[in-house]
Design a binder for these strands. Structure first.
Length: 471
RNA sequence: GGUCCCAUCGUCUAGUGGUUAGGACGCUGGCCUCUCACGCCGGUAACACGGGUUCGAAUCCCGUUGGGAUCACCA
């Protein structure tokens, strides 16, 4: 198949009944990647025909999450609620061609049929009562597809392999409700046909719908798309991912300080592989993604691994790229920061030691505070009379530094060490506590540099006074 | 229950008849070191079970077991 002649067209069709969750994001990602890789098109379609559960807030949230992940669409979003007349045209066609028929049976009647069938140990199916009655429709009449009684429908699934379903297992399912609205299986097929979708990658909870949908394609004489059903993402107890497994919406992961690139990297590896490679950047992924290496078995979501990947992506990014998102997370901590040279300097010191942006923001807080806030225990242990003179000397030497660079700082302390005969370990912790307030921080020199001369001096001097007062 | 799908370290996976079964996360020993990290070196740990096919099976077939999905005038 020459892609120049027949471009790949994929789609993502979320139901706006909640936020974009992890599993949905992964499905969207697979479709998007495949479209991008093949230079095809990616269509976004909102399946909002369930009026009771669909909300516009959900639509907004889903669009926002996709945008955050960097998954962009070439067409849409289309809304199924705006396409009812299209579905009806096709349903009429199906009735006229004899592939579908009106059915006047009430839901109660159908329930009874199912009960009776069950009682006889048979499958609970519609018994085809109206099948050959040639009803012409009317109030509360539904339309059913006339499905074959014999033979098999084989889904040539590109991830599961060929999967056969006995047509006798498929009953004459409803394609249009009594109120005139189209049912899911019909709407999906008509949408996919009219939108030119030729590659459908979706969760394997849809695998059982597929033969029904294929029957509609066949009845319409339409080209069959390529199907690929990827396994579900499970929670840590191997049950389908749900709220009780913790965060499941993409938005929550943004709040927790994950990078979109890390999310994408993690999600794609959940069910797809490229040999031993674990770390992928966007462009690399678009280039390497394929359908051949999609996995067939379900996988569990593992936050630890996401975390590790996030740390790697944080390390790979430039301070410029990270400063913006960091500002957002600093704001969450009540810190007003800007994406400027100062923040970028801060980022640089924290990059190798932050697994998330939240962690980075917490580690960065001390840089922004007007006054140092010492951890009592740390101050008690390290801001002691025996380091008073070194701290004073440090302040003196730092004050004289011009220019204030990391090299100059290192040189100044090398000299102090020589003069005093102290080991660096002796003065590093007191200095760290004096300036940051805690015993944990980035390396002394890079940290003093990022903090700036003025704040550094102010804090060391404050520590000196603190020790003097204590004495 | 019927139908369908799935099965390699705890987790994500590589593997497509012949490998000391590889990598990553986690856990862990060590190195590095101004703290915490990063990084580097090493360790731990898997082919669910039973039958076949084959000179030879993680790889192919069947069964068992165990998971999952689905059985609507929801999507």
């Amino acid at each position: 198949m020459n892609p120049a002649i027949k471009p790949i067209v994929t789609r993502f069709p979320p139901s706006p009944t909640g936020y974009l969750h992890i599993g949905g994001a992964r499905t969207a990602l697979f479709n998007w990647l495949y479209a991008r890789k093949t230079k095809g098109r990616f269509v976004l379609r909102i399946e909002d025909t369930d009026a009771a559960r669909s909300t516009s807030q959900s639509v907004d949230a889903i669009l926002e999450s996709l945008t955050w992940l960097g998954i962009d669409w070439d067409e849409g979003p289309y809304f199924q609620t705006q396409r009812y007349s299209i579905y009806n045209d096709y349903i009429e066609k199906l009735v006229e061609s004899g592939h579908a028929y009106h059915c006047a049976c009430t839901p109660e009647e159908v329930d009874r049929m199912r009960e009776e069938a069950k009682a006889k140990g048979q499958k609970p199916m519609y018994n085809g009562k109206c099948r050959n009655l040639n009803l012409t429709g009317g109030d509360h009449t539904v339309v059913r597809l006339k499905t074959p009684d014999t033979g098999v429908t084989v889904v040539e699934d590109i991830v599961k392999g060929p999967t056969a379903f006995q047509n006798s297992e498929i009953d004459d399912f409803i394609i249009r409700r009594g109120d005139g609205s189209a049912m899911y299986n019909l709407a999906v097929v008509i949408d996919d046909i009219t939108m030119g979708i030729n590659t459908i990658i979706r969760g394997d909870d849809h695998l059982i719908n597929t033969p029904k949908q294929m029957l509609i394609y066949a009845a319409l004489g339409a080209d069959m798309p390529v199907f690929g059903h990827v396994p579900m993402v499970l929670g840590s107890d191997k049950a389908r991912l749900s709220k009780r497994h913790g965060a499941m919406s993409v938005g929550e992961y943004k709040k927790m300080g994950f990078l979109p690139d890390a999310m994408i990297n993690y999600l794609v590896r959940l069910g797809w592989s490229h040999g031993d490679q674990e770390f992928f950047e966007r462009d690399d992924l678009i280039q390497k993604f394929d359908l051949e290496h999609l996995g067939r078995s379900a996988s569990m979501f593992d936050t630890d691994k996401l975390m590790a990947l996030n740390a790697k992506h944080i390390q790979k990014k430039t301070p410029e790229e990270l400063a913006g998102p960091l500002v957002f997370h600093l704001k969450e901590l009540g810190i007003d920061a800007k994406n400027d040279a100062f923040t970028q300097g801060v980022v640089q010191t924290l990059q190798p030691r932050s697994k998330t942006l939240v962690e980075m923001a917490q580690g960065a807080a001390f840089y922004y505070h007007e006054e140092v806030e010492w951890d009592p225990a740390a101050a008690d242990k390290f801001l002691t009379p025996d380091v008073l003179s070194v701290l004073e000397l440090s302040a003196e030497r730092i004050e004289a530094l011009d220019p204030y660079t990391q090299e100059a700082l290192e040189a100044a302390f090398t000299l102090i060490l020589e003069e005093t005969g102290l080991k660096f370990g002796k003065i590093a912790q007191p200095l760290r506590v004096a300036v940051t307030g805690t015993t944990v921080s980035p390396g002394i020199f890079e940290m003093l540099l990022a903090l700036g001369k003025e704040k550094t001096l102010k804090r060391i001097k404050k520590a000196v006074r603190f020790i003097q007062d204590k004495a």
